[in-house]
Structures are given as C-alpha cells and as structure tokens.
C-alpha cells in the first residue's frame, strides 16, 4: 500500500514536471533536437535541473540498503555497454526525433486527451509487446 502510494506520488510529480517544463509538448522537444534550425535549448535545462536533484538523491541512496519506507533498494547492477544497449538506444532516438515523443511525455499527452498521443502510446505499447515476444522466442529457441 505504502509502496503504491509512493509510486502514484512519484508518477504525479513526474507528470507535473513534464508539463511545467514544456516537455509534454513534442514541438518543444523537436525545437531542441533541431540544432541546425532555430535552436531551443530548454530541454538541456530540464535535464540539468533534474540531474542536479538526482545527484543528491543517488548520493544519499548509495549509503542505504533499505529505502526510507523500509523497502529493498533495487538498483541496476549491469555496467556493461553491450551492442543491444547502443542499438536499442539509437532506435529509440530515431523514433524520438521522428515525432518528438519519448515515453513519459507520450503518456502525459495521452492523459491530456490528445488523440494523436493515444495513437503514439498504442504503437509504443505494440512495439514493446513485439519486442517481448521476439525475446521469448529467441530464449526458447536458444535452449
């Protein structure tokens, strides 16, 4: 219960941050990615502000084995830079540049009732399901 309440709170705060920062608007994101046109550096300030707070939070978290609510810290342990990390991220970047949506802003725009965001999120979920399906097929054919 506590865990889910904290999750809803974090999600809400994240969404509000995306709205305040202007990043829920794909046109603003594309303004950042269009460095050869009229460039809008706002996204860099969003990342900067978020990372500033994040640095403090992760420094605090590193010293702990349990969270403030008493849950296990489940942090990533993989430090390898594999081919799939780079290729997957490059694919994501292409999709991001095509429409100006990454997952968070897509979901916020969906919550705002934008039909086009529904189409984007629907396709994104379809892509994730497709990925999961192929991964499982591969895993079973490998054994």
């Amino acid at each position: 219960m506590k865990y889910s309440l904290a999750s809803v709170f974090a999600g809400l705060l994240f969404g509000l941050g995306l709205i305040v920062s202007g990043m829920a608007n794909p046109e603003k994101v594309l303004g950042f990615l269009d460095i050869a046109g009229l460039w809008d550096p706002s996204l860099a300030f969003v990342m900067g502000g978020a990372i500033l707070v994040g640095l403090v939070a992760f420094a605090l978290a590193r010293k702990r084995t349990l969270s403030f609510l008493g849950f296990n810290m489940t942090l990533p342990t993989n430090t390898r830079i594999e081919k799939r990390l780079v290729i997957g991220s490059m694919m994501f970047g292409i999709g991001w540049g095509v429409a100006g949506f990454c997952p968070g802003p897509g979901l916020v725009a969906l919550g705002a009732g934008e039909i086009k965001a529904v189409v984007f999120v629907g396709s994104m979920v379809a892509g994730m399901i497709l990925f999961e399906y192929v991964e499982r097929k591969r895993a079973t054919s490998a054994t």
Binding site: M91, F92, I94, G95, V98, P103, M124, G127, E132
Partner: peptide, 12 residues
C-alpha cells in the same frame, strides 16, 4: 515513431 520508441527503449 511509437514502434521505434517501444522496441528501442526495451532493447536498449
């Protein structure tokens, strides 16, 4: 865009 973001973020 959605398909690329969906597959890419999971793969990466």
């Amino acid at each position: 865009a959605g398909l690329l973001v969906g597959i890419g973020t999971r793969y990466g």
